[in-house]
Computed example of a mutant assay.
Amino acid sequence: MPVIHPNWERPPVNMVDGYSLEMTAKDVESLKSTATAIAPETPIAVTFLPGEEPAARIEATRLVRGLGFEPMPHFSARRIRSTDEFETYLAAAVAEAGVKRCFVVAGDPSEPEGPYFDSSALIASGAFERAGISAIGIGGHPEGHPNMSKDQCWAVLEEKCTQIDQRGMAPLIVTQFVFDADAVLDWLAELRARGIEAPVRIGVPGPAGIKTLMRFAARCGVGASASVLAKYGISIGKLLGSAGPDRLVERFERGFGPEHGRVRLHFYPFGGLEKTVAWINNYARAH
């Protein structure tokens, strides 16, 4: 089995040890200003947003590598307009940023703009292993998927893990950001009971304004009922101010055990990279 990242080869010191981050091509200046506060070799995912030029994403990916971190560019299947576009972008990421790990998603459009309907189609193309990619990230859905039943979610996840493994790469499961730690713990227990041993990164929202968090939750289909938000520390009646993931991460710290397998956190910096990295470092010092 290929090595995914050195962070997986040792037990974590605390819940945020071995974390990963997400950024967009617009965050390059924030990354530069925050770089000295980020742990060396931290995996940083570079998202695939509509309206961005591929060159901007490649520049961001190259910066991640140049600053001593581990780039993991996203590939949004339904937004890729041709095989040539896909393979040219992948080749540039490998050649210019030494990319070894990629993350694949279907993408938001209901219909594909090119030949790839979903992330499975990208995996099945064989392009990743031909390019020398060693690990493929795929989405996990602890709170369910808006367009698939629970059984369909498990079947698709199992099939993707099998396909990635059979192609000589390592599967890595990364979830959408969550508010409900208990739902995640239950999902992880079922994941392992089903025999899926791939390491998992649980999505955690970095500190941000409450209205910002709610807006991203609505856009991403994240469960945000009043009871779940109350667990997280947000009151529906008080949407002013900001909120951090303190309660969520502390619940993970108490709840994670050997039965959950290899788990690390993946931070979505909705309030900015600087605030998220500062929160992570403060948490690490306190624990």
Rank of each mutant, 00 (worst) to 15 (best):
L49C: 01
V94H: 03
G132S: 10
M214E: 13
C161S: 06
W154V: 01
D246M: 02
I173Q: 05
I4F: 09
K160E: 10
E259F: 00
V228K: 15
R201L: 09
G107Q: 05
S82N: 00
A226T: 15
A91E: 12
S125Y: 08
V94R: 05
I133P: 01
G144D: 02
V99R: 01
G144C: 04
K26E: 13
A45S: 15
R247F: 00
V28E: 12
V104A: 13
S225D: 13
Y232L: 11
E274Q: 14
G137R: 08
S30Q: 14
A127D: 03
E96V: 00
H141D: 00
E190S: 09
T276E: 07
M214K: 11
A218M: 12
V104R: 06
V3A: 15
G237P: 11
A45M: 13
D180K: 01
P54V: 06
F252G: 09
R65G: 12
P71T: 06
E85Q: 15
P199Q: 05
M148L: 15
A37R: 14
G68Q: 00
T175P: 07
H141G: 09
R264P: 07
R251S: 14
N147L: 15
L122V: 13
A226V: 10
S119T: 02
R219K: 14
T47R: 05
T162L: 12
G206L: 07
E96G: 02
S119H: 07
P6I: 03
M169D: 10
A198L: 05
A37I: 08
P171T: 00
G206T: 09
P146M: 11
R285A: 14
G68L: 03
L248K: 09
A97D: 04
G140F: 01
K231P: 00
M169N: 00
P207V: 10
M169P: 04
E87F: 04
E53Y: 05
P6V: 12
P6S: 09
R194T: 03
E274D: 14
P146S: 04
I136L: 13
V204Y: 08
V174S: 04
N282H: 12
L240R: 15
G126Y: 06
G68W: 10
R101G: 02
I4W: 09
L273K: 07
